[in-house]
Design a protein around this nucleic acid. Structure first.
Lengths: 400, 400
DNA sequence: CTGTTAGCGCTTTCAT
DNA sequence: ATGAAAGCGCTAACAG
């Protein structure tokens, strides 16, 4: 525990005086070494060494130069999700790769979900922003737009003036749903959170359309909206599973989800089930508060048991799908014999588990977001849509 | 792809003029709202809104105030390891938690392993540094010390003037080794990299003591050095396993490892084997270039097969141990029937796998490092040493 | 190749 | 409650 002795910083002026040259010469010695004679540079370096000058003050330099060398990253979650959520991590690894390539630091803005988040964004000394999936009503988006800095949003929400990168989640969900729901009688979706209240709500009964954000709003925000959304059946059922965890429920309206990714995937799964001739209210939807196998295991156990046990589960991530497999194993069930299952992302664990899934690279998407924000797009970055494809594996083989 | 239109930033001066007040009044309106009448503040806010003023320029503010609001994190690895290496992620989640608590941004300094890393550190606009395990000869450490900013190093190297946080890796390895090596005839260690050359070396034959950093140097750097280190036997054997992967080899000298954590753990495993009456050169050491189960699986397959198949594997992380289990499963072997196995960290996956391991919380250690660097130590942070304990599970039950 | 001038945008004194 | 002056530490732009 030493290191806390913040000794005063030596300034360039002091070095200049000690070396017997002007401040500009010192500045050049550091910033433009070739503009200075070897001799002078040596003199400067020597004086700097002697005085313990650590080089130009980064803050002063960036104020003068008008750039910080930092790429800001804002999450629609608590800062720790950057390292806790496997999807966010993969995405950020891509961002980090691009940062490293360009010698830019990666600054994670300390959001916590509280009202101060807006200030944290405003106070971030960065040259550009990358935003990882947040809700349509997150005020942080406006704060970012207000800075006037280049910014790329991944997943959502879309906003004028901000670049946007996302796969066609609805189409992909429709593809996955078509596979996993085929031949099913009691389908279910294992979903990401619908909105930012993810961790604080435990509801009983059928969820009523919320006041502010709602049906038509959601539909208006995105292209491809089908409108309506199934009515909520009287049989809707919700169980308590612990703080922050909503239990399985029937008939959630996709349009009420303020996370665009969740909304689009719910829509896609609804599309798929409709195409098979089903009705959306027949689909049970379990909402996880986080993207973790552990939590999914709890919810999946609910889905897979009881008189109305599901026989098809479409999960919004491989992590959730793997949690489902763990629950199944505990219950003595197996896919595809007892139920079909699909995941999302095609992570390393998907193939060994025989999991049907949507393949996409969050890492590439992160890199792409970073490149867009930094103004260094690669050739392929032109297209707005991002590549994905359905990978069929054993977890949905039943009907074949 | 909009967002690239970096409109010029509105300044406080312009807002002042528009609001018909002085610059100071605007500054107060933002930084010290109570020092300004409600009326004036409203006037200022209105003008700001109208002009699109995003609030005080963070860089200018921090230059004036003398603090940035950023905690810098430096890895002894490529920047992407922050999100790719599970250990680093757990550590950084702890750092992130503390940052969020204090409203500080977390700035990952873009190191790549190249010579420019030093400059990246010098140019980082931060108030303090946290360093995640690097090698004794990493020049970045000097650069950090030169800034004069508070800094905490996790794992190593120790350095005067920088705070230091680490568990007693040697003692812990001795404890794990005592457990996993008990009754073994052909022990092995599955190790982290020895030095920064981790990914570039594929060697044949017995490794000669390297020129610069070496035996006595390593011993001198740490307390508890036992000196000597076993001679390298003629039978030393190295196999090629692909780029960046050293194959298993006998008789690596712990003192040659420039990563302090690796060195201390090797020493501890040597201690354990000696206590049982063994000779260090009898212990095979497989060095992984990264902390990944995938790579461990490859190396472990080597260790567990052939005429001299090992019957005890001490791994330096749970990830490496789980890779070993995967290799074993593929080979039709199981622990503890065919070999004993120990991991490190007691991650979530350890208990389900029945893995004997060293329990410690990298997350807590990350939080602790951040608190120390930021000058907000918690009560328990006083002790230099960090808590750990041996968790005995089935993977070493054979002899009991 | 080196130096002079000006000012990046803000906030800390210290008045009024 | 508001304002004027000064300058945080540095570098672009221009001389010489």
């Amino acid at each position: 525990m030493s290191g806390r002795t913040a000794r005063r910083r030596v300034t360039m002026t002091e070095v200049a005086r000690a070396a017997g040259v002007s401040v500009m010469t010192v500045s050049y010695a550091y910033g433009r070494p070739d503009r200075v004679s070897d001799e002078t540079r040596a003199k400067v370096r020597e004086a700097a060494e002697r005085l313990g000058y650590p080089g130009p003050h980064p803050g002063a330099r960036s104020l003068r130069r008008g750039r910080t060398g930092n790429l800001g990253v804002v999450l629609g979650e608590h800062l720790t999700y950057a390292f806790d959520d496997p999807q966010a991590s993969r995405f950020l690894a891509g961002v980090a790769q691009v940062c490293a390539d360009h010698g830019m630091a990666l600054t994670l803005v300390p959001v916590t979900g509280g009202p101060a988040d807006v200030d944290r964004v405003t106070e971030a000394a960065v040259d550009a922003f990358v935003v990882w999936t947040t809700a349509d009503d997150d005020p942080v988006i406006d704060a970012i737009a207000a800075t006037g800095l280049p910014a790329t949003v991944h997943g959502g929400p879309r906003r004028d003036g901000l670049a946007f990168v996302a796969a066609d989640d609805r189409a992909a969900a429709r593809a996955a749903g078509g596979e996993v729901f085929a031949g099913a009688r009691r389908p279910a979706v294992l979903s990401f959170p619908l909105d930012r209240a993810r961790v604080s709500t435990v509801t009983f009964g059928a969820p009523a359309p919320r006041p502010g954000a709602s049906d038509s709003a959601g539909a208006a925000r995105d292209e491809n909206a089908t409108g309506s959304g199934g009515a909520i059946p009287k049989s809707a059922r919700l169980s308590v599973l612990g703080a922050g965890v909503r239990g399985p429920v029937s008939g959630i309206d996709p349009e009420t989800a303020t996370f665009r990714v969740t909304r689009q995937r719910l829509r896609g799964f609804r599309d798929a089930w409709s195409e098979i001739g089903g009705d959306w209210p027949e689909v049970r939807v379990a909402v996880c508060s986080t993207n973790s196998a552990r939590e999914a295991e709890e919810l999946a156990a609910e889905l897979l048991t009881g008189p109305h046990a599901c026989d098809a589960v479409a999960a919004m991530s491989d992590e959730l799908a793997l949690g489902t497999l763990r629950a199944a194993a505990r219950l003595g069930l197996a896919a595809p014999a007892d139920f079909t299952l699909s995941g999302w992302d095609d992570t390393d664990a998907a193939a060994p588990a025989g999991l049907t899934t949507i393949a996409q690279s969050l890492r590439d998407q992160g890199a792409r977001c970073a490149r867009a924000a930094l103004g260094h797009p690669a050739p392929g970055d032109r297209d707005t849509e991002v590549a994905w494809h359905l990978v069929r594996r054993d977890s949905t083989r039943r009907r074949r």
